[in-house]
Design a protein around this nucleic acid. Sequence first.
RNA 1: GGGGGCAUAACUCAGUUGGUAGAGUAGUUGGCUUUUAACCAAUAAGUCCCAGGUUCGAGUCCUGGUGCCCUCACCA
Length: 505
Amino acid sequence: MPEFFHPDRLQKLADLQALGADPYPARSPQERDRAATLSACFEQREGHTVTICGRVSGRRGYGKLAFLDVQDESGRIQACLQKDRLSADDFALLKVLNLGDFVAVTGELSKTKVGEITVFGDGDFTILTKALENPPEKWHGLADSELRARQRYVDLFSNPDVREDFLRRSAVITAMRRVFLEHNYHEVETPVLHPIYGGASARPFLTHHNSLDMTLYLRIAPELYLKRLLVGGIERVFEFARVFRNEGLSPRHNPEFTMVEFYQAYSDYQGMLALTEELVVAAARAAGLEGGDGSLKAMFREQEYDLTPPFARVRYADAFLEHTGIDLLDRQALADKMAEHEVAPADGGDYAWWKAVNELFERLVEPELPGPVFVTDYPAAICPLAKPSASDPVWAERFEFFLGGMELANAFSELNDPQLQLQKFEQQVADKDDPEAPNQVDWDYVRALAYGMPPAGGCGIGVDRLIMVLLGKDTIRDVLLFPHMRAEEGLGEAGEEVAGAQLSE
RNA sequence: GGGGGCAUAACUCAGUUGGUAGAGUAGUUGGCUUUUAACCAAUAAGUCCCAGGUUCGAGUCCUGGUGCCCUCACCA
């Protein structure tokens, strides 16, 4: 068992109690000022009595005088505690104060001799929370990337940039939500536990419901439930959905991640394209990427991306032709290329053929698409949930959005022909070679379509990856507050089977 | 899962050819009423990731394992 409770600090806590103080009072001062506000509005508040609350992040003591750095969410401000301006009891608290403790200081807002804005304590000085663990080194902060992720709470308070970045993530999501609401969308929540997994191709996590004795899957996408809502007559829906995919970890993959999916009746993939562009632009603004001239530029992996709209659009077939020199209708040239790259269709069927073509696309074309760019009109055979083009059913009304070398969004004119949908489901389920294919036909979804789903556009955006690009973070771990980690040794039962929480029995 | 790298005090890091485990910060004690990585003095603190092996002797060399990072594969 690691030592969480530092013996010296336990002694200080006892000393604090001996002074008659509560180390963990329930109440804080009713009114308090934020550090950033006091700095910004110093002229108006100078000479007035103010109160600050926060964590002590620095301390410079002089016997009868001490300077404290007090840190709240908004920033840092200095407090000065002097023996001749405080009660003897309050001044004695300095003796039992450690870095990392939370305090409240009431006093006059003024400046020191060297001009630093400072709260000169002359009213109440209280310890609001006694910390029993040492904060990290004050100059370097917490640097070890594993510790930063495992103990994000420490990372957040000891590295101000980290806190700033996560608040920017929050602002980005708020901005996207605002765009949806401006377009009269409704925010909904759909199940996370799915009896049949679908709406994407990925391996699921399994779980088990004890009293129903049934296997359930953590959702890999909310898509099929959101479209049921279109059937039900809710015309514009979105969900910021945590989804779970049972695949390897990497700088771009976490087993659970956030997608925002949205569906709009009486729209189509072109409508989704326009809205996606609007969302990305709003997100970029919220991330603070707007330059003085109104342009939006993101730096990601040492490359600059211009997010000033409109973004480029290119048809799938045109992009393929441009980067490989091959016409997608030229089967012989494609077959030659497949042989060259050791890509082989699983069988003679259309589905297998186009899957192989798409593998070429991912290998040869996608790396040439740094973005931002919309690739439109995908082969219909590999789009089981997209509506084929009326003018040429080889192509589906679908686009993907690429940025920073990653696929960030995927959208279609939603397939609403129940018979065609059933056929596509059956085809997928029959693909035994694909471990990511759905486990069974989602009959209820087919039935829902049978009642009629209005023509609609739908789209899913990978929120974490979008934020990676906007904040210039190389790894997804840096945009997730608590990225998945293996169980830490020596911390107790984490990772062990807990009675009542088994998958089965 | 394959390949490469890292693991030393609470934190940031040194550690020579294999020869008694080190510094700074944080902590503790004392001094100091305008500092800001305050300063001065004293002091405490280690499963050198784990388990084996080689050796008179291992933080250091070898084998195996664990965790993390990078990379490839799969994926968003």
